[in-house]
Structure formats: structure tokens, C-alpha cells
Amino acid sequence: MQQSNWLKWLSSDARHFQILSQFTFLIYGILFLGWDQDWLNYAAAFTGTVGIQTIFIKTGYAQNHSYKSAIITALGLCLLLKTNSPIIFFCAGAIAIAQKFAIRINGKHLWNPANFGIIIAIILSGNAWVSPGQWGNQAIFVLVSSVAAWNVLSRIGRIDTGIIFLLSLSIFEYFRTVVYLEWGHEVWLHKMTSGSILLFSFFMITDPMSTPLNKKARIVWTVSVAFVSFYLTNFFFINASVQWVLFALTPFTPLIDKLAKASQFNWQKSIQPLFNLKKQTNESTY
């Protein structure tokens, strides 16, 4: 199939698609969901992440293409973190990127940068929060996010993580809400179509750099994140528990990696053919 240069370049790195999808969600939030965030806040998040990344690139710690990761982190913060202060956005972005270089085990960073930035901003500033209800439950959103996610994740071989997370969370919630509590299916569906849950499952927990490398280990790890967040939501009424659980369980990934060996993940090597999504390659063959 003849592909234009542009398309070839676009499909050369799965992160391009991720940036495009996240950017689309941000525009959707601002234009259609009426978020009241200042543009200054978004600019601050970008300055924080890209600025710090530049420092690390200039000092030789990172390669040029890692700018893309910084943009993904900034978009992640814009999509999930809420605060009225651009300074907090800037710091969250800067800390998120800095920890990628400061906290490394086996040459791999530990936390998902956006997740780290969000949790640190909430704990340290006391003036930041996440709004689990901000996405609503519109069907169109569900459709678009899953298509976008499928596009990104199938390329990096991490679609399994997102789907397993969503599936196990749905099963836990189903047993609690419908089977045990006897609410109607609509209550369960309302919980599971929450935009925040979908975005988390497709764009945060699937981060190949901060999840276990071995496939089986990753499944176990994903199910445990789903279970703990289900437990905290239903029995301790903690809002946005998925973010906290991911943050708390991330330190276990190097341990899991040690027990279940697999090869390193590399963004640019990971790419799979654009028009042949069915062909799933096991990353251990890399």
C-alpha cells in the first residue's frame, strides 16, 4: 500500500497517535464540556514538562524524541488535574518529568509521570484535585475514546492491559452493584461508562514504561490495581481511587520485573504495521 510521507512519519511512533487522541480529548473538554480552565494553566503544564525535559536532553540524559513523552505528560495533566494556580501546574509538570530521571530502577523509570505529578500536586499543594465526574457518561465519548485507545495501544502491544483493567473492574463492580446490592443494570453501566475510568484504563495504566514487562505478570498486576481501586471506591468511598492505587502499586513493578523476566520496552522499536492491527506481536520477541 502506498503511504504518504506524512502518514509514514505519523505511524513511526505510537506516541504520535497518543498525543493526537489526548489533544482531541482536551479540545472536547474545553469546547463541548465547558471546562473552566485557564489557558495559562495549560501553558504552565507544557512549560513545566517540556522545560525540564529540555534540560535533561541538553545535558545528555535523554534523546530528542523524548519531547513527545513530555508532551504526553503535559496533556495528561491538563486532562486530569484541576487547580486554579498555574504555578501548581508548572510544578506538577516539572516534578513529573524530573522524577523520571531521578527515580530509576534497572534503567527504567518507575512512576507514570502524569500520575506522579497529579498525586504529588494533590498531596503537597493542598490546592489541587481531580474531578471524576468531569467527563460525564456520553456514549459518543465512550466510542471515540475506545477507538482512539485501540489505535494507540494495539501499536505498542499494551491493549491487553487496558482491556483487562476495564474488564476486571467491570466484573468486580457487576458483582457488587448488580448481583449483591441488587441495583439495576443501569447503575452499573453508569459507573462503568464514566469518562474518567475509560481514560485511565486506556491512557494511564497502559503506560509501557511503568507497567511490568512480562505479559502474565502484567495481567496479575493490572487485576490487582482494578481490585484495590474497586475496594477503596466501594468500601472507603475514596474518589478517583484509581489514581491513588496506581501511584501506590507502581513501586511493586521492579519487583515483579525481577521475578518475571522480559526484555526492555522501546517506544520506537515497538511500533507495529499501521494497517495490520490483527497481527499482535509478543514483546518478548524483541
Partner: peptide
Amino acid sequence: VECTNYRTVK
């Protein structure tokens, strides 16, 4: 105060 399971819109 904001709603956590529905959107809170101005």
C-alpha cells in the same frame, strides 16, 4: 462542592 458521578456544569 462538586458532583463526582455526574458533570458539574456552570
